[in-house]
């Protein structure tokens, strides 16, 4: 299976990528990162860009580092490279947990964090975790750099706040070294994509939940925070009873008519999964909180 013909350009710097995007703005142009969403779409004919600009090799966009209280993830960092970085597990436990659930080893070796978030597949594992982690998407375009809070980032299926002339350069995640996180998903038996995936990041003080962020993917046509669950958790303890109570409101504020409904799962089934996997994610978070508290 071949993709349709296209012109290929390799950008060696962010500036060059932005220039190439501007130069080819009249054509259907796609940025190529790890290619694990784009190339399958091109091979199956769902996407037929005229121009591909390969940004995967831009050195400045690779790597995981810590800047003060912020974990900085270069957009072209592969899933595997993030998982190899101890700082990612320490400062972004929910995000790292979700990254570990993406695809399989070979996919994680190629696919990138920035590529995933720019593509914004609602059934991917990262949107919920990015929301739970309060990430900031940093993008660069002809007018310079701008920061997009994750709560303003996801618009819909494959639609984000990014402008066509921009590329994601890094993802910044505020350190959650004092919190516990987890990700629980119901994968599609065939594709492994999330029918429902829940990421939770919970901070406790003396056994009381002081803050909670819970994000879901696979449910709506974009990642969404489960604010009713978050509110139910804060002020309580992360025990079995409060987890049950919080998960019970998982669908509150989510219009079932807007829920994804497809061959994999009806909207009604997704609503059931949403509660069940919220419970699983919170239970796993509580289990992860114990060893962190002992540190």
């Amino acid at each position: 299976m071949f993709p349709d013909e296209f012109d290929y350009y390799e950008a060696t710097s962010v500036d060059e990528a932005i220039d190439l995007l501007a130069e080819h703005s009249g054509a259907e142009t796609e940025l190529l990162a790890g290619g694990h969403s784009l190339l399958p779409a091109m091979k199956s004919g769902l996407s037929s860009p005229d121009v591909l600009i390969d940004v995967g090799g831009i050195d400045d966009l690779h790597g995981v580092s810590v800047d003060g209280d912020t974990l900085v993830v270069g957009a072209m960092t592969s899933y595997s490279d993030l998982l190899d970085a101890d700082a990612a597990h320490k400062h972004a436990p929910a995000f790292a947990a979700a990254v570990g659930q993406v695809g399989d080893e070979q996919v994680r070796n190629r696919g990138t964090i920035g590529g995933n978030l720019a593509h914004a597949d609602p059934a991917s594992d990262l949107p919920g975790a990015a929301l739970a982690s309060d990430a900031t998407i940093v993008a660069e375009g002809p007018n310079g750099e701008r920061e997009i809070p994750i709560d303003d980032y996801f618009f819909g299926m494959y639609a984000t706040a990014l402008d066509p002339g921009e590329l994601v350069t890094r993802v910044e995640i505020p350190s959650a070294a004092g919190a516990a996180g987890a990700y629980a998903k119901k994968p599609s038996p065939s594709s492994g994509y999330a029918m429902v995936g829940i990421a939770a990041l919970v901070e406790t003080d003396g056994g009381t939940v002081t803050s909670a962020r819970v994000g879901a993917n696979g449910v709506l046509d974009h990642g969404v925070r489960l604010e009713a669950v978050e509110e139910a958790l804060v002020g309580g303890s992360l025990d079995q009873e409060s987890i049950e109570a919080a998960a019970a409101v998982a669908t509150d504020g989510i219009d079932e008519a807007m829920m994804m409904s497809d061959l994999q799962a009806s909207a009604e089934f997704r609503a059931t999964l949403l509660e069940a996997y919220t419970k699983r994610a919170l239970r796993a978070t509580a289990e992860n909180a114990a060893p962190r508290a002992a540190d």
Partner: peptide, 13 residues
């Protein structure tokens, strides 16, 4: 040195 699926990579990459 990393295992990858060669049907999902361009030769130019």
């Amino acid at each position: 040195g990393e295992a990858v699926k060669s049907c999902t990579a361009l030769a130019v990459q």
